[in-house]
C-alpha cells in the first residue's frame, strides 16, 4: 500500500501537480465542494429543507458582519428565513450532481459513437459525423432549451415538473456528445492502423472486443481532459437553464435556481441573496476550469 502511494507521489503527474500552485488551489476548492456534495449535513449549519427549523422572522437578515446581521447566519438569510450558506451548500450539491451526470451521459453517448465511426468508417462514419455537424450548427444552450421545450410540450406541465432533474441531465448531456465523438473518432482512426490492432484481429478477436479492450484504453486520455473542461460547461449550462426558469424547480434548488430566486430581491437592496450563490458558482466553475487547463497541459507535454 505504501509502495503504491510512494509511486503515485513520485509519478510525473504528481510532480507536475506539486509544481503548480493554481492546480493545488483549484483542487483544494474542488475538494471543499465535493465534501459539500457528499456530506452536506455535516457542513451546513442549518438543515434548510427541514421546515420546522426555519422561521419567517429570520427572513432578509444581512450577512453576519453587516449591521443587523446575526452570527447564526454567516451569509445572511433569504426571503423565507433560510440560512444562505446552508442553501448554497445544498445547492452546490445539486449543481455538481447534475453537471457530473450530464458529462457522464455525454461520454457514454459520444465515446461509443466515436469508436464506431473511427473503426468502421463507411456509412456509419458518414451518418454519425453528419449528425454531429448538424448539432454543431447550434450553440449548446439553444439545443438544451429546444430539448426542454419539446419535452415540456410533449409531457405537459405536471409530468415535466416531476421529471425536471432527469430531463435536465438529458438535455445537457445531449449537447455534449459531439466533442467526444469527434475526438475519439480521430484517435481511433490513428490507432486502427497500429500493429497491435492488426495482431488482435489476426488472433481472431472480434471487432467489438478490439474496440473496447484494445483501442478504447488508448484513446481515453483526451476524453478525460475534455470531460474535466466540459464539467465546467455543464455546470454553467445547468445554472443558466435553472436561472431562466427551465431547469431545477425551487423545491430542491441548485445554485442557478438560488440565483434566479435571489434575483427578485436585487432591486430592493437584498443583494446577498443573489450575489453569494453566484460567487459560489463562479468559484466552482473557476476551480474546474483551472484544473482542466492544468490537466490538459500535464498530460500533453507537447503543448508546453
Amino acid at each position: 500500500m505504501t509502495d503504491v502511494l510512494t509511486r503515485a507521489w513520485q509519478s510525473d503527474i504528481a510532480f507536475e501537480f506539486r509544481r503548480s500552485p493554481a492546480a493545488i488551489g483549484a483542487a483544494a476548492v474542488l475538494l471543499l465542494f465535493l465534501a459539500a456534495a457528499v456530506v452536506p449535513d455535516a457542513l451546513a449549519p442549518v438543515p434548510v429543507f427541514d421546515l420546522t427549523r426555519i422561521a419567517l422572522r429570520d427572513a432578509f437578515l444581512p450577512p453576519a458582519w453587516m449591521e443587523g446581521g446575526s452570527p447564526a447566519f454567516l451569509l445572511g438569510t433569504d426571503a423565507q428565513g433560510r440560512d444562505l450558506l446552508s442553501a448554497i451548500i445544498y445547492g452546490a450539491r445539486v449543481s455538481m450532481l447534475v453537471g457530473a451526470a450530464s458529462v457522464l451521459l455525454s461520454v457514454l453517448i459520444g465515446v461509443p459513437l466515436g469508436l464506431i465511426a473511427g473503426y468502421r468508417g463507411g456509412w456509419a462514419d458518414a451518418l454519425i459525423m453528419r449528425a454531429a455537424d448538424i448539432q454543431l450548427t447550434f450553440p449548446a444552450i439553444l439545443v438544451a432549451v429546444i430539448f426542454d421545450g419539446i419535452a415540456r410540450a410533449a409531457l405537459g406541465g405536471v409530468a415535466h415538473e416531476r421529471l425536471a432533474v432527469p430531463l435536465l441531465i438529458l438535455a445537457i448531456g445531449i449537447t455534449g456528445w459531439v466533442q467526444y465523438a469527434r475526438t475519439v473518432r480521430g484517435a481511433t482512426m490513428v490507432e486502427r492502423g497500429r500493429d497491435y490492432v492488426a495482431a488482435a484481429a489476426l488472433i481472431g478477436r472480434r471487432q467489438g472486443a478490439i474496440m473496447l479492450r484494445h483501442i478504447l484504453p488508448n484513446v481515453l486520455t483526451p476524453v478525460l481532459v475534455l470531460a474535466t473542461i466540459n464539467l465546467a460547461v455543464a455546470i454553467i449550462l445547468e445554472a443558466t437553464l435553472s436561472f431562466v426558469g427551465l431547469g431545477i424547480p425551487p423545491t430542491q434548488p441548485s445554485l442557478g435556481t438560488l440565483i434566479r430566486v435571489g434575483n427578485d430581491y436585487l432591486l430592493s437592496g437584498e443583494w446577498w441573496i443573489v450575489i453569494f450563490p453566484g460567487i459560489a458558482l463562479l468559484l466552482l466553475v473557476l476551480a474546474v476550469n483551472l484544473l482542466g487547463d492544468w490537466l490538459r497541459d500535464a498530460l500533453n507535454p507537447a503543448l508546453q
Binding site: 440565483i259 432591486l267 443583494w271 463562479l282 476550469n289
Partner: peptide
C-alpha cells in the same frame, strides 16, 4: 480572461445590474 470565461453570462448581467443600476 480565465475569469471572463468562467463567469456564467447571466451572473455577469446580475453583477452589472447590482453595480451600475442598484
Amino acid at each position: 480572461s480565465l475569469l471572463g470565461i468562467s463567469v456564467p453570462s447571466f451572473f455577469m448581467g446580475v453583477l452589472l445590474i447590482w453595480l451600475f443600476s442598484v
